[in-house]
Amino acid sequence: MVLGLYAFADIAADGAPHLNSAAGEELVRVERAAAVALGSRAPEPPGTLFITTRRVIWVSEVEKGKAYAVDFLAVSLHAVSRDPEAYSSPCIYTQIETEDGSDEESDESDSEVNVETELSKVTEMRIIPSDPCQLDGLFEAFSHCAELNPDPNAESDEENGWAHRDEGDEDMTGGSDAECEFSDVNPIGQTDEHDITHAVVELQINDQRFEDAEEAEHETHGNGH
């Protein structure tokens, strides 16, 4: 799974990208004369947008060989933006998930040119069609394709977000609200891995840890730092 935006080079003579048809990639929508703006940079001169079942590819019409792509797996959010106060042109606004600083595949990109690493750090992309009436159609195409690309490893992702430090933090006491809310769940019995009581204890730990995380925004904890 490739996170972030990347340069796309596999373009046919007619300007269309070569798709990975072996992996079932198909073209869903083509939008000509669409500008793209990366992060806070100014929009690039118009190009052609290709929405496929796996990714979004933008190919410059002005600068030959210039093209970007981002996998739908890395598109966290997409939305229609029409308010001129937020952005000068009506556009599809997207947020892009990027690799964290310390990823194991980084040694490959180290040897690449600087532009490549810059691209991979872009977290926002706007697509500005020449005809604003296309926005809703583009949004629907994005939504359709996003649904075609669920996370392959959603569970382990979630675990990273939550379940770690638990064992070391047994001195934490849970929130009484959660205990109260689930007290009548206790007698039900056991699941395969662990009993409900254990789950309730986890619940309280999660609760406590969540509050820590929130508070960490305005006060620094001694714990771990």
Binding site: H78, S81, D83, E85, A86, A154
Partner: peptide, 18 residues
């Protein structure tokens, strides 16, 4: 996040929801 003021409808990928 001032630039998101204008967004009226929004699709959020399930895997990025906390």
């Amino acid at each position: 996040y001032p630039h998101m003021l204008s967004v009226r409808n929004c699709f959020i990928r399930g895997s990025v929801v906390r």
